[in-house]
C-alpha cells in the first residue's frame, strides 16, 4: 500500500522505544500542565490584590515567557540550570552529574511557559465577571481569600475553560520540542527509529496518529469537565 513499509514495527526494540516515548511524553505533559494551572491560579490571584509591585512582577513574568519561543526557553533552561554549577555526585557511579536532568529542565521550562499563558486565561475569567457579584460577596461579609476561592475562582474557571483547553493542548504538543534537549519522549524516539530504519514517512505517520489520539483524549476530558462545570446562564448551561 503506497509503498509504505511497517515491518520495523515488529521489532521489540522499536516497540519498547515507542512505549517509553509515549510514557515520557505523558509524564512531561501531565507535570507541566498541572504546574501551569497552579501558576496560572496563583498569578491571577496575585493580580486581585492590586499591589503595584506585585502586578509589575507578574506582568514581567507573563511577557517574558509568553513572548519568547518555548524551544528557546527550553534550551536556556537546559544550558543554564544543568550546566551552571548545579551538580551532584551520583552515589552509585561516583560520577558528577547535573542536579537537574534534561527531563526536569524541560518540565520546568514548559511549566513556566504554560503558566504564563494560564495566568492570562484565568485573569480574563476573573475580569469578565461582573463587578456587582464581587460587591454582593463583600456585602455578605466575604473577605478577600474566601471571596476568591468560593466565588471568583469557580466562576472564572468556568468562563476560562475553553481558553484553558487551548493552552493545555498547545502545551501537550510543545512537549515534542523537549527532544531537542535529549529528553527521551515520543518525538525523540521517532528520530532514533527513522535514523535507524530510514523509514521517515512511516515513522512520522505513526507518530502523528499517536499524537492525535493522545491530544484527543485531553480535549475529550476537557469537554467533559466543561459540561460538568456548566451552570445555567453561562456558556452551554441550560
Amino acid at each position: 500500500m503506497l509503498g509504505l513499509d511497517y515491518s520495523w514495527l515488529a521489532d521489540p526494540a522499536y516497540q519498547r522505544w515507542l512505549l517509553i516515548g509515549v510514557v515520557n511524553t505523558l509524564k512531561l505533559a501531565a507535570l507541566s500542565s498541572s504546574a501551569a494551572i497552579v501558576i496560572g491560579m496563583l498569578g491571577a490571584l496575585g493580580f486581585t490584590f492590586r499591589i503595584f509591585w506585585l502586578d509589575a512582577l507578574i506582568e514581567l513574568f507573563v511577557e517574558v515567557f509568553r513572548n519568547t519561543p518555548p524551544l528557546l526557553q527550553m534550551l536556556f533552561a537546559y544550558f543554564t540550570l544543568s550546566t551552571l554549577g548545579l551538580k551532584v555526585t551520583d552515589p552509585s557511579t561516583g560520577l558528577s552529574v547535573p542536579l537537574l536532568s534534561a527531563f526536569a529542565c524541560a518540565a520546568i521550562s514548559l511549566s513556566l511557559f504554560g503558566g504564563a499563558l494560564a495566568i492570562e486565561a484565568f485573569r480574563s475569567g476573573i475580569e469578565t465577571m461582573p463587578r456587582s457579584i464581587v460587591d454582593a460577596a463583600r456585602s455578605l461579609g466575604y473577605g478577600r481569600w474566601a471571596r476568591f476561592w468560593r466565588i471568583e475562582a469557580p466562576i472564572a474557571t468556568r468562563i476560562c475553560l475553553p481558553a484553558l483547553t487551548n493552552i493545555l493542548t498547545n502545551l501537550f504538543k510543545t512537549t515534542s520540542q523537549a527532544s531537542v534537549i535529549t529528553v527521551p519522549e515520543l518525538m525523540y524516539y521517532a528520530g532514533q527509529i527513522y535514523n535507524d530504519t530510514f523509514r521517515t514517512l512511516e515513522v512520522m505517520i505513526l507518530v502523528l496518529l499517536i499524537y492525535v489520539a493522545l491530544v484527543s483524549m485531553l480535549t475529550f476530558a476537557m469537554a467533559r469537565l466543561e459540561a460538568f462545570m456548566a451552570f445555567p446562564g453561562y456558556g452551554r448551561g441550560l
Binding site: 457579584i133 460587591d135 454582593a136 463583600r138 456585602s139 473577605g143 466562576i155 445555567p232 446562564g233 453561562y234
Partner: peptide, 25 residues
C-alpha cells in the same frame, strides 16, 4: 479599613441590589 474588619458590620447590615447579584454557579 478592610473587608475583614467589616465582617461584624456586614453581619448586621445586609444589602439587596438592583441586579440581584446572585452567585450564578
Amino acid at each position: 479599613k478592610s473587608d475583614k474588619a467589616m465582617r461584624a458590620l456586614r453581619h448586621q447590615v445586609a444589602m439587596v441590589f438592583q441586579q440581584y447579584n446572585l452567585f450564578p454557579h
